[in-house]
Design a protein around this nucleic acid. Sequence first.
DNA 1: TTTTCAAATGAACGCGCGTTCAGTTAAATA
DNA 2: TATTTAACTGAACGCGCGTTCATTTGAAAA
Lengths: 198, 198
Amino acid sequence: MARKTGSHGDITGPKVREVALHLIARHGFAAVSMRQIAADVGVQAGALYRYTPDKQTLLFELMRDHMDALLAARAARGEARNVLDRLDDFTRFHIRFHSERPDAVFVSYMELRNLTPDNFTKLEGLRRTYEDQLEAILKDGVAAGVFAVRDTKITTLAIIAMLTGLTTWYRDGGRLPLDEIERIYIDMVHGAVGMAQG
Amino acid sequence: MARKTGSHGDITGPKVREVALHLIARHGFAAVSMRQIAADVGVQAGALYRYTPDKQTLLFELMRDHMDALLAARAARGEARNVLDRLDDFTRFHIRFHSERPDAVFVSYMELRNLTPDNFTKLEGLRRTYEDQLEAILKDGVAAGVFAVRDTKITTLAIIAMLTGLTTWYRDGGRLPLDEIERIYIDMVHGAVGMAQG
DNA sequence: TTTTCAAATGAACGCGCGTTCAGTTAAATA
DNA sequence: TATTTAACTGAACGCGCGTTCATTTGAAAA
């Protein structure tokens, strides 16, 4: 046996990434072998190397693609005028985007330590770019006298940690619909930036 | 060579755990080998099995000890009278305890997936016990009309995620002293539970 | 000092790892 | 249809893995 009937790189390639993302999220990068990924894809281990030069690059590209998608989706959204709407929009966006991709979120936060220093630096840059977008909103809000924030950097990180924490427990079809969860988080974010709730 | 001069189980045992915690936090459980741990301890790999029956148990006991210490330290603290003081005390306690043990925190949150189902269940119970303590405060605050919280469960998880996020960036001797960081977080927690800041 | 016990060695076990590659087969092209 | 190209196999490579164990040696007890 060699090439299989119906085989096509445009199908196998994405499937490799999908399977890898899922397995790595479940068991961790170091705990998942190329043979396991290959088995779930339905090929032999050697075939994976048509789609990635090595395991490390596969991990890095999964994480980089996630961050690229995050920044692209964010950029595609128009900016609201007033600073409170911008904050609410960020909150809603973050919740939606992250709740739809728990595997990618998990991997992107947990496997940073398995990246080579070079790859780590690149990813840090992307993450920093995203964080800076929230901090810019906070700074504008403080300047406008709308938010009362002691330290915009810490508040930025605290809000992102709070919002991202959602992915550890949120499951589709759970106790509360995502709309309601969004409202709850928006209230809490308002509180965190020193606004009265309502 | 066999037994080394000055060797003693009361010294090597704790050192095994200390080294293991540090290496696992840095590289992940699956990525760290028993030989690496042994090398940092200063023994051969076989000697580790005088201190743990196997690698999995070593991981579990590190995580369980961390949670036990967390609950014990929390219980050792007297409860304040009014509900706002109790919330502030929880916030301060959580920040202090977690900022002092970044390795253990990291491992306890990241390596859950590497536990056997049995061990996972045990640890989930301990974590749940801790979360329930914060939720009890929130419920009391809501009942007393002091807090305005839509959903105590979600708010509990959100606050803990926000506070624990600190360990990903806090380093001793950083830009802000821990006292100041505490104040910032206390303000944000007040906001998250629907109180005006001050 | 002799005996007992605790601590650690170092070699060995089978196994699965990431990766390479010559060979085989299906799909695409001419 | 004949040729080229893309997809994949399956075997092989050296290596490090978790774990076991007979043996050696230092520390503690008698």
